[in-house]
Write a protein that binds this DNA or RNA. Structure first.
Lengths: 167, 167
DNA sequence: TAGCATATGATGCATATGCAGATACTGCGA
DNA sequence: TCGCAGTATCTGCATATGCATCATATGCTA
């Protein structure tokens, strides 16, 4: 039983990884072809649009799209150069700055959103019924929740610590 | 239900992407910390070990780990330098060469496999029961199969091809 | 068998992004 | 107030990897 379970975990993971990687490449290619921006920009714009006043600290933004702070510095440099976001000094903390979505950024995000929804439907939703989606969400939620408990919610520090049972 | 379905596709995808990305980072970190090699090397070694005579053409290898040929050239350069694989001229086609797993490569692969299995169990299998794994595999298989048909059935053949169906 | 389209792998260049350290600022304690 | 530890961001450097292109080899066609 334990043996069979391990093998299945490997199979499920390898298939999942291969599939997700392929989809990611498709989505990135679509963004580049149709909007001239990489998918990472879309992630940033989405995060900003979901924040109060369409603005976030660079630090927070970096966490929300899972890249490092130096990486976010360069990413914002590029997106700012394209005019989709701008930096604003933080009045209450002069060390830092806010990244703010511009009008042009909002426009681009709207286009990107439409394109991405279509792409998702074509490459993912189309092949899955309601139950599949529900199952996928359920499973990933278990793993994500477990991952958060393992990684201590913020630190990238990975050690085997006694994790509370999932769910 | 149709509109709910679309929203769910986005939700399921975002959660899946976030989860898979996090796991990938964990696995890569584990390989680097415990074996001093990146997870891409492991992918290459696994592909080779599943091939006849532990050897594959660079082209085939590149397809099986989903990177480009130039990328594979450099990747093999690095792995060869570490002594885990070696290049052998192809007798029947003097343009190309084979990448062959060395004894040291086999040894490293065995260690990597053990480590990875443990890592998978800790970060994935541990949170999922048999039904979860079966569901995940079923869903990903649908998407992967659909992706292949969309992209013109590219050669992505490895020994760990998507199984005929969930058990 | 000469010629050309194609295939394989390597190389130049560009981009993305991580780590280590630099810089500027904050806030707490002596 | 002063000094120091901590924080936010940026910069230098290294690595990974994609695209365009090159040299070589193959093999089909006439």
């Amino acid at each position: 039983m334990a043996e069979v379970e391990k093998v299945s975990t490997v199979m499920a993971w390898e298939l999942t990884l291969r599939t997700v990687s392929a989809l990611l490449k498709v989505y990135d290619r679509t963004f580049i072809d149709k909007l001239g921006i990489p998918v990472t920009w879309y992630d940033v714009l989405v995060s900003l649009s979901g924040a109060p006043d369409n603005r976030l600290r660079a630090q927070t933004l970096a966490e929300s799209v899972a890249i490092t702070r130096p990486g976010m510095t360069r990413l914002v440099d590029a997106i700012e150069k394209a005019g989709l976001v701008r930096r604003e000094a933080a009045k209450e903390d002069r060390r830092g700055s806010y990244v703010v979505l511009t009008d042009k950024g909002e426009l681009t995000l709207a286009q990107a959103h439409t394109i991405h929804l279509d792409d998702l439907e074509t490459n993912l939703g189309r092949f899955l019924d309601a139950e599949d989606l529900s199952d996928l969400h359920r499973v990933m939620n278990k793993v994500w929740t477990g991952h958060l408990s393992l990684s201590g919610r913020r630190a990238m520090h990975i050690e085997t610590m006694p994790a509370p049972g999932p769910q």
